[in-house]
Design a protein around this nucleic acid. Structure first.
Lengths: 153, 153
DNA sequence: CCGGATCCGTTTCGATACTG
DNA sequence: CAGTATCGAAACGGATCCGG
């Protein structure tokens, strides 16, 4: 694969351990798909991003070998596999949420409504908690639309 | 440069706006150096990581063009330049902190003391606030050593 | 159809050497 | 000190093929 360099990097600590995941876009997109949108199948990962199948399969293997996801066969549809997040990746949610909030704040054409953006500034913690609950209960898509004011999927 | 693809990616929202930074290791390491360690000179960025000078200079340009850092000449030492974070990158601190905490939790040989790790689990918010203050007051190196129990630099 | 693997041209990386 | 130029090596990514 790559990044055997990451062992050297340990010395400087703060974010070094996360570089393997946060150093790669596709990995992040896959984790987003899994955590936010509850996507589980090969074909559903980052579907609009036109990720090449070879790249996707490589990343999935990497994520599996690093303990971020597990893979098992779908009982109903024997020719499908289901990828699920482990606690190691579920615990990345706070990170992804912070990235999301930061993005909403600095994206010149942020997709969220002004109302939500304002609330985000005022009651950050509450908003953070709300989203966390929405995500964990699988209702993020709804929250996104109703609370954030994002219409387009 | 690259990533003109990022415009397409907007539709899926959650972390898409952050991918330009979080998709690249070196960019993250530079931001870490700037935000946590108050490094300002070309030669000081990610010094132990052996980042190639061409890569470093490219990333610094990119970060500057994206509004994450500003560059100005050092008055005292005319042949040196000083890179400073903008509010756009300062506001990334919560993200980096979350990455750090996550890393401490899952790194098999986490550099932090057991005492700190335990405290991190119990009083997450407090710890988070502490570190934020330490970083923002330029005392992170001290905090790291005294509170986290990381001896080696 | 789904989940990949293989091939292969193109892009990017990154170590070193070199310049102002 | 702060970069640029060069160039071989690695990664990317589009297309195609393959097994279940």
């Amino acid at each position: 694969m790559r990044q055997s360099r990451s062992t050297k990097r340990r010395s400087e600590c703060p974010i070094s351990f996360g570089l393997d995941i946060f150093g790669d876009q596709w990995t992040l997109l896959i984790l987003r798909d899994i955590l936010f949108y509850n996507r589980v199948n090969f074909k559903d990962f980052a579907p609009r991003e036109h990720i090449a199948t070879n790249i996707l399969s490589e990343r999935l293997k990497k994520l599996e070998s690093m303990g971020f996801i597990t893979k098992c066969r779908n009982d109903k549809l024997q020719n499908q596999y289901i990828y699920s997040p482990t606690s190691k990746s579920k615990d990345l949610l706070p990170v992804l949420l912070e990235i999301m909030l930061w993005g909403f704040q600095y994206d010149p054409d942020s997709p969220v409504s002004k109302v939500f953006l304002e609330r985000m500034g005022r009651e950050r913690m509450t908003v953070l908690r709300e989203i966390t609950q929405a995500v964990e209960s699988g209702r993020f898509a709804v929250y996104r639309q109703e609370e954030m004011g994002i219409s387009d999927l």
